Structures are given as C-alpha cells and as structure tokens.
Amino acid sequence: MKSALREQILTILAAIPSGRVTTYGRIAAMTEGGTPRLVARALRDLPKGHGLPWFRVITASRKLADHPGAAEQRDRLAAEGVMLDARGRAPTERLWP
C-alpha cells in the first residue's frame, strides 16, 4: 500500500467522532484510490498502542467484522453509546459522515 493512501486512511480514521461509526467503504470513498479491503489492511497493520479509534469502523451491513478484536470493539462502542441491535447492527443514525 502506498504511504500516501495509508496516511489518508489514518487521517480519516482519526476524524471519526466519539459515539459514531463509519464503514470500510465510506473511508475508502474519501481516499484517492482506496478500497474497503485496503482500509481493513491499514487497520490490521496498526501498531500496538497507536490510540486511533479503529473500533469505530464497521462493515457496510453495519455489523462488526469477524476478527479477533470484535469483542473489544463491541465493548468500546457500547462505552461510547453505540449499541448494536438484536442482529448485531449499529443504528443508522450513528453513521458518519
């Protein structure tokens, strides 16, 4: 992945407000040439202790992606008031931008 694209993704990630979520695809659409898979890759490659709100990024179906940090992601979103419904989806009114 080009460093310019990675920087765009991380800048957008840092801008997601507390209590809101966005999708891999929405982030990709805000970049120059990004795809949802490249966004996921950038998030997966974040170093430990980075402090970026990776947990605010969800799938296009408004669900959590299947990954080892999903339980932590659910807890961190709940702490910000983002409660998933019975199907595991975030409320549409919490989508950003």
Rank of each mutant, 00 (worst) to 15 (best):
G25Y: 02
I16Y: 01
L95A: 12
P17I: 04
R89H: 07
P91G: 03
A60H: 07
M83Q: 12
A70W: 06
W96G: 02
L46I: 14
T35V: 10
R56N: 12
T31S: 01
T92V: 08
L43G: 11
E80Y: 03
A60T: 14
T22K: 05
F55L: 01
L43Y: 11
L64Y: 07
Y24H: 08
Q8S: 12
R44C: 04
A40H: 08
L64T: 12
P91D: 09
I9P: 04
A42V: 15
P47E: 15
G19R: 10
L46T: 14
P68Q: 13
A65P: 11
L38K: 12
P47L: 05
I9H: 04
D85G: 02
R76G: 00
P47A: 11
P47G: 07
T35R: 09
S61K: 13
A15F: 01
R6G: 06
A79H: 05
I12P: 00
R74Y: 05
E80S: 03
T92Q: 04
V21P: 00
R76V: 01
P17S: 01
D85Q: 03
Y24V: 05
R26N: 08
K63T: 15
K2G: 14
S18F: 04
G33A: 09
T22E: 07
W96A: 07
L77Y: 11
P91F: 01
E93P: 01
S18H: 08
R56G: 08
D75R: 12
D85I: 02
A86Y: 02
Q8W: 09
L52G: 11
L52T: 15
K63P: 05
L84M: 04
T59E: 15
W54M: 04
A40W: 10
A79P: 08
D85E: 12
M30N: 04
I16P: 00
R76H: 06
L43S: 11
G49F: 10
A15W: 02
E32N: 14
G88A: 01
A28R: 09
V82T: 12
R44I: 09
I27L: 00
Q73Y: 01
L52P: 14
W96I: 09
P53E: 13
